[in-house]
Each structure stands twice: as C-alpha cells, then as structure tokens.
Amino acid sequence: MSWGGEHGVRISLSAVVMALHSGRLCALTTETAEGELALPSGPFDPANDRTFELALRAFVTAQTGFKLGFVEQLYTFGDAGRDAPRATPGPDQLREISVGYLALTSDAVDMTPPGARWTGVLELFPWEDRRGGGRAALDTIMLCLSRWAAGDARRKARIDALFPSEASQRWDEARVLERFELLYETGLVAEAVRDRDDARLIDLGDRPMASDHRRILATGLGRLRSKLRYRPVLFELAPETFTLSELQAAAEAVVALSLHKQNFRRGVERTGLVAPTGCLSTGTGGRPAELFRYTGAANADGQAPGLALPALR
C-alpha cells in the first residue's frame, strides 16, 4: 500500500525484542529469504491493520513464535539521501519508512520457527564491549578513523567524543547509534559496502543485518542503556528472584562494562528497589547467596528510579 502519488512510501514495522540469554544480552532475530539476519518486521497495511502495534505483534508472533508484552515506540527511520532502508523491489519502487519498537522480556525461550533465534548484540556491535571482548574490533576502528580524520579537527573531536581513547575520558554507553552512524559514514561496516560504491569491507568481526535493521537495533540498545539510569528497566530482563551478583551480571551484560561490585550493591540498596526474600540461592556454585526480588518502589515524583552504574576505570 502506498501514499503520496507518484512518489509513494511504504511503512514497515520492526521490533527490537531484547532479553538476557545464556548470560548475554540478546535480540530476537529472523532471517530474510536471502539468508540475511533481520529483526522481526513486516509492512503495515492500512486497509487491514487497525493499529501499528497490533500489526507488529502479529508479525513477531508469526515470524518467531514469540508473543510480545509491553512495547514502546523507538523512532521512525526514513532519512532522505540514505540508501537503507532501500526502495521496495518492483516497478513501484516505494520509499521505505521504518517504524521501530522496543520490547524487553525475561522469558528468552528458544525459538522454533526456522531462522528465529536469540542473537547476542555484541556479535553485531563488538566495539561496544568495553570489558576486553571488543578490543580487536576497536583497534581496527581507531586505526581507520585516525586516517579518516587526519588533519581535520572537527572529525577528530567527533571521534574523541564517541570513541574516547584516554582513561580520563568517559565512555558514553548510550551513544550506540552515533557510533554505528560514524562507522557507516566512514565505510567501515558491511551495510556501507552494500549501499555505496566508495566503501570497502573491513573485518571488524561483526555481523551485518538486512536493510536498516542494525541501525534500528543500535537505537534500541542505546535507549535501553540510557533508561537504566533513570528507570528500573533492568528488572524487566531479570527473573522474579535473583542474587545481587546476578543482578550486577545482568547490568554488565547490558552496558558491556565492568561494574564496581561494592558500589553497585550500595547503589541498589539506596534505591529501595529490591528486598530480600528470606531464601537462599543454591545454584551459585559456592556459598549460598541471598535471593532478592524487585519491590517496584517509587520516588517522590511517583516514578521508580534507575540504577547507578559505577564502572571500573
């Protein structure tokens, strides 16, 4: 279905569904007919779909077997002059407008439909891992970016803000999309090679995605990381009961940073967001640890606070 006369558009809906699976932050993915990794998505049909959200839920369930809980709209992607999302195939060549949504779940069950799986987000953005796992990708990126910025103060300042190399400079874990956009602009990711003639493939150990799906996923990851600090979204990924070590491991999986254990625990306790259950965990492999639960406590403005994330230097 198109709008806009001769130069119509098609609206597609994409879901960024995130969960903790096998200790990793993962996104629910599918495969296109061409075998490309993709987010659950599909076209919105204004003649038959009552709302964007209902259509999105139907796409996700049909493609993955997963039933969405709460979702929030992320962003609408349709920049003029950007080659992805590309025009739809066929004689109409409709311009594609993508509406992205974010959903979190603690129920990361294995998927049964062909191609559906939980994919680790650091497989897609290895440079986002500041615990050492993304070192090779980051070294390659910094070498290429330094050449790109040679003699250009504005480019160098942009690189320094997004990929700080000095220990005294803070890594902003929420700027995932800006980092991916910089790598696309400089031709360092596979999507740039696909969309442009002036880019060549650089091996960063990452995985590309169909159309603009990695850009949408980067937006979702950045939104999740940002919200950790002002809303208790981490508990939407956590099981009903957990140890404080498990909660810290969950936070580290999301931000891909190593957190200071004592400061993290003190920060959690100050929020009043958790309460002891009176039970002990026997699955820690060592001395039984106390189990906690999320209390849903609210602050003065009626909102539950986020968590402090004291990163190790």
Rank of each mutant, 00 (worst) to 15 (best):
residue 1 M to Q: 11
residue 2 S to N: 13
residue 4 G to P: 12
residue 10 R to W: 01
residue 16 V to E: 03
residue 17 V to C: 14
residue 19 A to I: 09
residue 28 L to D: 03
residue 28 L to I: 12
residue 30 T to Y: 03
residue 32 T to F: 06
residue 36 E to P: 00
residue 39 L to A: 09
residue 43 P to L: 08
residue 43 P to R: 09
residue 44 F to P: 05
residue 45 D to Q: 14
residue 47 A to C: 04
residue 52 F to G: 02
residue 53 E to A: 13
residue 56 L to H: 08
residue 57 R to M: 10
residue 60 V to R: 01
residue 62 A to F: 03
residue 64 T to L: 05
residue 65 G to Q: 05
residue 68 L to G: 15
residue 71 V to I: 15
residue 72 E to R: 15
residue 72 E to Y: 00
residue 74 L to C: 11
residue 74 L to G: 14
residue 78 G to Q: 11
residue 84 A to M: 08
residue 90 G to H: 11
residue 99 V to M: 12
residue 101 Y to L: 08
residue 103 A to V: 09
residue 105 T to L: 02
residue 106 S to W: 00
residue 109 V to I: 09
residue 109 V to G: 06
residue 111 M to T: 14
residue 111 M to H: 05
residue 114 P to M: 03
residue 115 G to D: 06
residue 116 A to V: 11
residue 117 R to W: 05
residue 119 T to W: 01
residue 121 V to G: 03
residue 123 E to W: 04
residue 123 E to S: 12
residue 125 F to H: 05
residue 126 P to Q: 09
residue 135 R to T: 14
residue 140 T to F: 03
residue 141 I to S: 06
residue 153 A to L: 11
residue 154 R to M: 01
residue 158 R to A: 02
residue 164 P to L: 06
residue 165 S to F: 04
residue 166 E to V: 03
residue 167 A to Q: 07
residue 170 R to K: 14
residue 170 R to D: 10
residue 174 A to E: 11
residue 176 V to N: 00
residue 177 L to W: 04
residue 180 F to L: 08
residue 182 L to P: 00
residue 186 T to W: 00
residue 192 A to P: 07
residue 192 A to F: 09
residue 195 D to C: 06
residue 195 D to T: 09
residue 197 D to I: 00
residue 198 D to F: 02
residue 198 D to I: 04
residue 198 D to Q: 04
residue 202 I to M: 10
residue 203 D to Y: 01
residue 203 D to Q: 08
residue 204 L to D: 00
residue 207 R to Y: 00
residue 210 A to M: 08
residue 215 R to Q: 12
residue 217 L to N: 07
residue 219 T to I: 10
residue 224 L to S: 07
residue 226 S to G: 12
residue 228 L to G: 04
residue 231 R to A: 15
residue 232 P to V: 13
residue 233 V to A: 12
residue 235 F to G: 08
residue 235 F to Q: 10
residue 239 P to K: 14
residue 239 P to D: 08
residue 243 T to R: 03
residue 243 T to S: 15
residue 244 L to D: 14
residue 251 A to P: 07
residue 252 E to T: 08
residue 253 A to K: 02
residue 253 A to T: 07
residue 253 A to M: 07
residue 262 Q to V: 07
residue 262 Q to F: 03
residue 263 N to G: 05
residue 265 R to G: 00
residue 269 E to V: 05
residue 270 R to S: 11
residue 271 T to I: 05
residue 275 A to E: 15
residue 278 G to W: 09
residue 280 L to Q: 10
residue 282 T to R: 14
residue 283 G to N: 07
residue 285 G to L: 10
residue 286 G to H: 12
residue 286 G to V: 07
residue 289 A to P: 01
residue 291 L to S: 02
residue 292 F to V: 00
residue 292 F to N: 08
residue 294 Y to S: 04
residue 295 T to E: 08
residue 295 T to C: 11
residue 295 T to I: 05
residue 296 G to P: 06
residue 296 G to A: 12
residue 298 A to K: 15
residue 301 D to S: 15
residue 301 D to R: 15
residue 302 G to R: 11
residue 304 A to W: 12
residue 304 A to N: 13
residue 305 P to F: 14
residue 308 A to R: 15
residue 313 R to A: 14
